[in-house]
Amino acid sequence: MANFGYTLMCEQTAPCDLVDDAVRAEEAGYDFAAISDHYNPWLVEQGHSPFAWSVLGAVAYATQNLELMTMVTCPIRRYHPAVVAQQAATIGAMSQGRFTLGLGAGENLNEHIAGAWPHRTQRHEMLAEALEIIRPLLAGETVHHGGTYFDVPEARLWDRPDDGVPVVLAVSGEDSLALSKKLDGTVAVAPDASLRLPGKPAYGQVALCYGPDESECRKRALDQWRWFGLQWPVLAELPDPRAFDAASAFVTEDDVAAAVPCGPDLDRHVAAVRKYVDAGFTHVALVQIGGGHQEEFLAWSQSELLPALRADGA
């Protein structure tokens, strides 16, 4: 049986509403909540981007059993790896061990605010070195690190869960998958069985646009989600929401609706989630597109979607 998560999409929701949504997601029966960690929204129309770690602290305090994770944090530019470890350890302690740190190589959209965006090859080298700092700190070690990209003269974490914090990595190909083999699992945004590690958790994410009117949902998905089809080599490089708007200008409503189930049809939404379960993913986080439409989605999740997914054997 897979675990199902609710995505706290910072790009489309204000911070206090995100905390309320997390509490409601726990009530609705979701197993975990995944939060995006952005400085900017993908598109101006989304309209938000609060600091994910402040939201996580509030969510950890306001919930009881909901597992939490970042999906995902980049530890190579906007944050120093030692600071990422401290953030993760603090949320792990506040949640009494309910937190998993999801990491990835990041996007120019968010990371250029702290300096020039490195070439892809360099970013992967930086990510590998960041893990050499984060993992031992989370394990309770004192770290002395002098590397190519990062220096840590001396650091230890004074507050952390007794069992540490699991670390999972966003993967999209052979290089990132090889790096993830030393970690506790993988994160992917495609239902591809090759992006899993045997015997370890695999986290997927699927976008939905639920609502009673399919036509309205299709329009909302185009307005808020048309960036998603640009693929990772483009997503990682564009610098700001205006660039994403220009790059997605020729995406049509039909294009988005072909990738995102829209409207009230329960079977269509279940089928989209089922692709990840069939590919062997142990955890699937769901995104409801549209910041103002979360309560209706969570109510529907509680009454129809989650029971259907679990009855389906997912």
Rank of each mutant, 00 (worst) to 15 (best):
G173T: 05
K219D: 13
W158E: 13
Q231F: 08
D213G: 08
P191V: 00
A202P: 00
E154D: 09
Y149E: 06
F150S: 07
T186C: 05
L177Y: 09
A236T: 12
V189I: 15
D163W: 03
D175S: 13
Q224F: 15
R156G: 08
P161W: 12
V256N: 06
Y149R: 07
D162V: 12
E154N: 09
L179C: 03
V167H: 02
V187P: 03
R156C: 12
D175Q: 13
G204H: 11
A188S: 15
P201K: 00
V168M: 13
D184G: 07
V165H: 08
G204W: 01
A236N: 04
D175I: 10
V187S: 03
P153W: 11
G229I: 07
K200S: 07
G164E: 10
K219R: 15
D175V: 14
P153N: 12
A236E: 13
P239H: 01
D255L: 02
L195W: 00
F150P: 06
A207I: 08
L177R: 11
L179I: 06
A190E: 10
V165N: 00
V168G: 03
D223Y: 11
V168P: 04
Y210R: 09
S172Y: 13
D163S: 14
A190R: 14
V256G: 05
W232G: 04
E214K: 15
D184C: 08
G211N: 08
L208W: 02
A193E: 15
A170D: 02
Y149G: 03
F228I: 12
A221S: 15
A247D: 06
P233N: 02
L183K: 00
K181W: 03
L179Y: 02
A155P: 05
D255K: 07
D240C: 12
V234L: 10
T186V: 10
C209T: 14
R226S: 12
V256R: 02
Q231K: 09
L208A: 04
V251F: 05
